[in-house]
Design a protein around this nucleic acid. Structure first.
Lengths: 353, 353
DNA sequence: TTGTAGGCGTTATCAT
DNA sequence: ATGATAACGCCTACAA
């Protein structure tokens, strides 16, 4: 029973616990790490010593010795709008905490010429054991190949082209945009503008596809001039709205590929005195906070971002603990949220009222 | 010249660098840590070896050996509204990155009965070397005394009662609310409602004081029924507005103690068809994103949150590196931002026009 | 089922 | 100014 050091105030080490429980440090280690081959009785003894001493294994020692830092890195786009990232953060943190992992942040302003160097730097001191890549980080091939090279497992949230051997969490945003568009059509809208998302985001193409599908299904021709490029931020939504509202035959409704842009559309409409939803219906995507804080609150599709992040984090940590890379069987569902930014079209296509 | 291990792919250690530079590992350590007592020539040799080998010291080994994790913890209130925290995060991360520290997050939902346990847990594995306490975390005595007990230095951002021997970063929010109120008075407003912030936040009392001072200076009586309790979130702003707009003699202007509540006030006004700013002027505080994304955009006071967080982080890291606890000489200034949510009062107190 | 020895990559101590 | 050697606290092998 080696008790290598005297009881010192402050730091309780594995030796203290071992001494107290009358076992070797290895046995303590086994118990702490939930390994097998420990008699229940011994385990109990150790556990009470742990409790009494308030022992917590030292993270640095564990990392150094076991070559596992128990830290997950989160690389995210540091944009003005933070609604999406906030949900990712919440989900990731919740799971990390439950699994006793820590989360380290790596904000990146896109586009970033030295992104590979930034990520390499982030992983440099051996701190990161696995990486979380929320959109659009999972879309960048240079990041993915770097992580592959570094042998750092990662989980991507809504990447553009999910590879089966990696961890990917996706959702049915295409279906959701389809449903949103169809809803507007059912409300009598025909001239429906669309603001796309950033072309580098995987979700952008999906959402645009959902819009076109719905138009096609209902025999509404796709008018190119009613489709504008946006970048997922408020300002680009505003600018897209400017162009759309300047059209001769302006739209009676506008779908923006996310809530931030929809808020921009709404802002522009108000500035021009266009009544929403009376003269213009507006639709967003994600149901982040801003959707219910502008007036009128936005009709949108609720993407379960936090839950998706939780799932990604869980699968990633499982993988770090030796399980194979898995992805959810099914993409997550998005739920339609009808609010006051949309109304029946006043155009005389259908009977009045 | 001990070269303890062969050149292995992947991990470059201090031994590799030492061998390459033809010095001992201690010398490499000195150079890497910018210690003195190294000949310039030797330093150069080591530095080029470091560069050529792309050597990065292992964080875990450093932490274990030096008893310094180079990690700063950020305990923050995990509220719905994230505008404030977003700026804190940005500021803290920027400085951490520059000083080669990492930032660990500890979100806490308030009120939290087990907050002390949560924070203790957060610090438990020896990961955290210093702690950042943005409002309102610096106001909680139990947290402060816990950190004192644990001998973990901390820096508070706008705490209620800053102690001189600790690191505190504050701003002149009292002056700013004073200026905002005065601005409204100059615009002809007399019936000015006020929504206070969460009573546990130090800033709440300050901002309320600024409001009262301005009224007093201009001989406007303080009407208790025009002051409502809020909690810094959107919903409480909405509810406060409900009460204020229900008053017989409703206010012609409302000052909310932050932007999120101001957005709630605006939302409620719109729901009732109260025209802003024609029938009601609205003022916020902070100039977080939401202030310029609602319509009309909010007149507010810009609190330099990110810069304050940067300063707090810098001072904290300095302290962790042996310097004494210092605080800025002067509180930070807040800047008035006049936007379209305020206008001249239409009440016939001053001449028309 | 349990324990012993050695090493993880640094920083710290004390020589020289 | 520089270097040898011992911690740091834990985990991994291998023994018993």
């Amino acid at each position: 029973m080696p008790s290598r050091r005297d009881t010192r105030p402050g730091k309780v080490t594995i030796f203290d616990v071992a001494a107290r429980a009358g076992v070797s440090i290895k046995t303590v280690s086994r118990v702490v790490n939930n390994e097998s081959n420990v008699r229940d009785q011994t385990r109990e003894k150790v556990l009470s010593a742990v409790r009494e001493l308030r022992y917590r294994p030292n993270a640095a020692a564990r990392a150094l010795s076991g070559n596992r830092s128990r830290v997950v890195g989160l690389v995210y786009e540091n944009a003005q709008e933070f609604g999406y990232t906030q949900h990712v953060l919440n989900g990731a943190l919740a799971v990390c905490e439950a699994r006793d992992y820590a989360l380290l942040l790596c904000p990146i302003g896109l586009p970033s010429p030295d992104i590979v160097e930034r990520v390499r730097d982030f992983t440099a001191e051996g701190r990161i054991e696995g990486m979380l890549l929320p959109a659009p980080m999972g879309d960048l091939p240079e990041v993915r190949s770097l992580l592959g090279e570094l042998r750092i497992p990662f989980a991507a949230i809504t990447p553009k082209d999910p590879l089966p051997q990696e961890i990917n969490v996706t959702c049915k945003d295409r279906d959701a945009t389809f449903a949103l568009t169809e809803y507007l059509i059912e409300q009598g809208h025909r001239a429906i503008g669309f603001v796309t998302g950033h072309p580098d985001h995987g979700a952008s193409a999906e959402r645009y596809a959902g819009y076109r599908e719905a138009l096609r299904k209902h025999g509404v021709p796709l008018a190119k001039e009613r489709v504008r490029q946006g970048y997922f931020d408020f300002e680009s939504g505003k600018q897209a709205a400017r162009a759309l509202l300047d059209l001769e035959a302006g739209p009676s409704a506008i779908i923006a590929s996310n809530d931030d842009m929809a808020a921009g559309v709404l802002f522009e409409a108000r500035e021009r005195g266009v009544a929403v939803p009376d003269d213009l219906s507006i639709v967003g995507f994600d149901d982040t906070r801003i959707a219910s804080r502008v007036w009128p609150p936005l009709t949108t599709a609720r993407q379960p971002i936090a839950r998706m992040a939780e799932t990604a984090t869980r699968l990633l940590i499982d993988r770090l603990n030796g399980e194979p890379a898995r992805s959810p069987q099914e993409p997550f569902e998005c739920e339609l949220v009808i609010r006051e930014s949309t109304a029946r079209s006043r155009e005389p296509l259908t009977a009045r009222r």
